[in-house]
């Protein structure tokens, strides 16, 4: 029987799937790994779904489970692969009006982000998703101060990469 909870889970996930896609985008560099990670996160979300009681937003909850899955998988893989090759075709960068300088900058930024470690990627992801430091600290299970410090360090790292 297709259970009620399964149905509502699938509906919610479908509506919010871009969150998962974006996590995959940060952690993978080609379409195949993107799909693999998407599937893995879907399975982990479904496994964790009984614990999701709706007292937090689906999106907030999906951030947490999705990032945890990506971080765990990334850790396991890290032993064999040190850096992820960055495919700019896959991470297509669009700008409204063609602005060469901006586009170059974006390319560099994405490349720089792809070189960050698993936790820093999660942080930058939440930052890009407009989470404030309270939300970031809750999702990642670190203190707010720690989140700020880490974020500043990342900004520094990125700045250094962009303006050597």
């Amino acid at each position: 029987m297709k259970s009620e909870s399964e149905e509502s889970f699938v509906k919610q996930l479908k509506a919010n799937q871009n969150i998962v896609h974006k996590i995959c985008r940060l952690y993978t560099s080609d379409q195949d790994s993107h799909n693999d990670l998407f599937q893995e996160i879907t399975i982990q979300l479904w496994k964790a779904y009984p614990q999701f009681r709706g007292d937090s937003k689906f999106t907030t909850w999906a951030y947490r489970v999705g990032l945890n899955t990506a971080i765990t998988l990334y850790r396991k893989k890290k032993r064999s692969i040190e850096t992820t090759p960055f495919d700019t075709e896959f991470h297509r960068i669009k700008t409204d009006e063609y602005n060469y300088e901006e586009e170059e900058q974006l390319k560099l930024m994405y490349k720089a982000i792809s070189e960050l470690n698993d936790i820093d990627k999660a942080l930058i992801f939440l930052y890009l998703e407009d989470n404030d430091y309270t939300e970031i600290s809750e999702t990642l299970g670190i203190s707010e101060v720690n989140a700020r410090v880490k974020m500043n360090r990342i900004k520094g790292k990125l700045k250094k990469i962009l303006n050597p």
Binding site: E102, L106, M109, Y110, L128, L162
Partner: peptide, 10 residues
């Protein structure tokens, strides 16, 4: 940081 804001927009 301008670059990060640009990235956020993108």
């Amino acid at each position: 940081m301008d670059e990060l804001e640009l990235l956020k927009k993108d």
